[in-house]
């Protein structure tokens, strides 16, 4: 479990139910692994994805829009990003 206060666009604290580390992987592997991990979660659960591919800040919101999951935002953490995605119904 992890708490974070996202800056964009999540203003409120986000509590993640699961964490996926994709650091060192580049497009589209982080998205493929995100999709696989999301299949194992219940609706409403929040997945935290760690990535050092800054283009994921563009791709993850797009993937969420197309798959009807909710993109909650991202937080930079040194050279990495923590992205938060809530599984859709």
């Amino acid at each position: 479990m992890r708490q974070c206060s996202g800056k964009e666009p999540a203003e409120v604290a986000v509590r993640s139910d699961a964490v996926l580390d994709t650091v060192g992987l580049y497009c589209p592997l982080p998205i493929i692994k995100t999709a696989e991990r999301m299949r194992t979660l219940r609706a409403g659960a929040v997945l935290e994805v760690l990535s050092d591919d800054r283009v994921i800040l563009v791709d993850m919101p797009a993937w969420c829009r197309s798959t009807r999951n909710e993109y909650l935002g991202a937080q930079p953490d040194g050279p990495e990003y923590h992205l938060f995605v809530r599984k859709g119904a």
Partner: peptide, 10 residues
Amino acid sequence: MRNEGLRAGA
């Protein structure tokens, strides 16, 4: 450098 497939899907 975005993934165009994901962009198109969205």
